[in-house]
């Protein structure tokens, strides 16, 4: 059913820390790697080694330059994937019922066996979270690694989304945002986590943590050490002798 379920108590999602993300794209690669096996149609590539590679990814990392009113510009790396919205417009537009939001934990998924590949859900998403796979002809999106997080065949530390597990700077956090006492909820409260494009009224579950204020940059003269050269040995003796004349 493409009607949205009543709001679930459990709201699984990601919290992404823009302060610590270094833009290494490891999450992109880990996501692509995990979703090439097991769950649903593999994320395909077209012309992967050609002049214009093209492929399906569920996670993309943008880099932005932000210029505050005063002080130097900041570079902020910005991972973008499905936000598992509570008011998910991608679910209600689906004509076949393939696009759905789970009542038990709020994960938004696609039943690929029912997807006709019309692309309307991708149009309805403000965040570009959905990409139609060119080979399978079905819509692909972040599953929040539903085949990892509940998978008891995996060691406990691996029961989190591949992108979170792989992030070398711990910029990605996974947890229950419906529980105000969870680690992720506390992180959001502490750091002022925010929604993307709130004017679209999608009520995303995923939150983004803003970069911390770096304060004014110290004045740095990178050439200063090079100008203060101390000569030693024969050159030093010559230097001192020549200065005497």
């Amino acid at each position: 059913m493409t009607a949205l379920p009543p709001p679930s108590a459990k709201k699984l999602g990601l919290v992404i820390d823009l302060d610590t993300c270094v833009g290494c794209h490891a999450c992109v690669t880990a996501c692509k790697g995990w979703n090439d096996q097991g769950y649903g149609a593999p994320l395909s590539d077209q012309n992967a080694y050609g002049s214009e590679p093209y492929g399906t990814f569920l996670n993309r990392v943008h880099s932005y330059e932000v210029q505050p009113d005063t002080g130097p510009a900041q570079v902020i790396n910005f991972p973008r994937s499905c936000l598992h919205c509570e008011n998910a417009p991608c679910v209600t537009v689906c004509p076949t019922g393939a696009s759905y939001k789970r009542a038990e934990d709020g994960i938004v998924l696609v039943n690929e066996d029912a997807c006709i590949g019309c692309g309307l859900c991708a149009w309805a998403c403000p965040y570009g979270a959905r990409e139609l796979d060119a080979q399978a002809g079905v819509m692909k999106k972040c599953t929040l690694c539903v085949d990892r997080i509940y998978n008891e065949n995996l060691p406990e530390e691996d029961r989190q989304p591949a992108c979170v597990r792989t992030c070398p700077t711990n910029a990605r956090h996974f947890g229950d945002l419906g529980d105000p006492d969870s680690a992720v909820s506390k992180l959001v409260a502490e750091r002022g986590g925010y929604d993307l494009m709130p004017e679209m009224d999608t009520r995303p579950v995923n939150k983004y943590l803003p970069s911390r204020s770096k304060g004014p940059a110290a004045e740095i003269d990178v050439l200063a050490p090079l100008l203060d050269v101390k000569t030693t040995g024969f050159a030093g003796w010559l230097d001192r002798m020549l200065e005497k004349f």
Partner: peptide, 24 residues
């Protein structure tokens, strides 16, 4: 508002996430 970085300052694209085109 799309990135939420408007609160920090003026936002400009520095590097795209991929060099080729994609479905979006």
């Amino acid at each position: 508002s799309a990135t939420g970085l408007g609160a920090v300052g003026a936002v400009r694209v520095l590097a795209p996430p991929h060099t080729g085109p994609n479905y979006l």
